[in-house]
Computed example of a mutant assay.
Amino acid sequence: MTLASPASPEVSITVTDLTMRFPVYGVDAKSLKKHLARVTVGGSLAKSIAGATEVTAISNLNLKLRPGDRLGLIGHNGSGKTTLLRALSGAYEPDQGQIEVRGRIAALLDLSLGIDPSATGIDNIRLRGRIAGLSAREIESRMDEIAEFTGLGPFLAMPMKTYSAGMQARLAFAVATSVEADVLLMDEWIAVGDAQFQKLAHRRLLDLVERAGILVLASHEVDLLRLYCNKVMRMDSGVASPVMDIRKLDELMAA
């Protein structure tokens, strides 16, 4: 995978003949475990080789995105959407093919990543900020704004293990959306917190999306895709459809 400098003159994503495979060990051909393995990473299952079942999560995918593209990924659970997002973020290396991403990436894929239950909310803001690619100086300069947006007040001085799941999600969301990104990758965890916080979250996300050059969003929510995206692509057992205009969403979902 090639990650170009954030100072690149043109933000872009170019994926050429991408194939992603995962070996799954100790899985019998007719077992429930095999079914769960497919659902976990998506794609299709090959024959067992040397005790491992090979899962092809993405097969020969080609994709080109340019500034202004907002791509929605659709498909059932296990179709390869999250695997593609992780590959674009650099978390997974291609087995075959190439990925070139020009611009600074913000990957909003896992709200629980990097959370330290024993540390305070403030310390977790710093930790999550570093994971998101912010420098220590950038984190401190944004600390007041992030802390205010969480709405957690004095709880920020308490250990995260005392937080409810909703409180943890609010903190993680506030940090994840404080970044400046050329390429924004988002999985389907946008609806966090109560109704009031969700309104604030959507406004914050819309602002973040408007500032980003490219968005790739995986979701089952039709209204969400129409709100954020202008293009759509369907994943089915690791195989991608052609990229279509978002106005073709209903047609693509029915295919």
Rank of each mutant, 00 (worst) to 15 (best):
R137F: 05
F197L: 03
S112W: 09
G129P: 00
K248F: 14
D28S: 14
L85P: 01
E188F: 05
A195P: 01
D144F: 04
V101E: 05
A87V: 12
P117E: 09
A57E: 08
I49F: 01
Q168V: 01
R104H: 13
N124R: 01
D123N: 07
H202C: 00
E210Q: 13
M167Q: 07
E100C: 10
T83N: 06
Q168G: 11
D236C: 05
T177L: 11
T177G: 04
V24P: 02
L224G: 00
G90I: 04
L171K: 07
G213T: 13
S141V: 00
I58F: 05
G129D: 00
S118M: 14
P117V: 06
A57I: 10
E138A: 03
A255K: 14
M253I: 13
A157I: 01
L61N: 02
P23L: 09
A176V: 07
D28E: 14
I74M: 08
V243Y: 04
F197N: 02
R126A: 11
G103M: 10
E188W: 05
G121W: 09
A240W: 07
P67I: 07
R226H: 15
G213K: 13
S44T: 12
T40V: 08
Y25D: 12
Q168K: 07
L65G: 10
R226Q: 14
R204E: 06
D28L: 10
L225I: 14
L156N: 01
N62T: 11
L152A: 07
A29W: 14
D144Y: 03
K33Y: 10
R86L: 04
L65D: 11
S31C: 05
M167W: 00
R104T: 12
H220L: 06
L36H: 05
R247W: 08
A29R: 15
G80Q: 02
K34I: 09
R66P: 01
L127C: 09
L185E: 07
K199G: 13
V101Q: 06
E221R: 08
A181S: 13
S5I: 04
L65K: 08
V55K: 09
R86K: 15
G72C: 13
W189K: 02
V55S: 10
R102Q: 14
E148S: 12
L152S: 10
D187P: 08
T162S: 14
E100L: 14
L184P: 04
S219F: 08
T177Q: 05
D95G: 12
V216Y: 06
G238P: 02
P242M: 00
G51K: 10
S237D: 12
R128Q: 15
R104L: 14
G80F: 06
L225G: 07
D69A: 06
M167E: 02
Q196R: 11
L113N: 03
K231Q: 09
V239W: 00
P6D: 05
R204W: 09
N62V: 06
S237C: 06
F173S: 02
M186I: 15
R102D: 12
N77S: 14
T2Y: 13
L224H: 00
V15Q: 01
V101G: 03
F173N: 00
D28Q: 13
L200Y: 13
S178L: 09
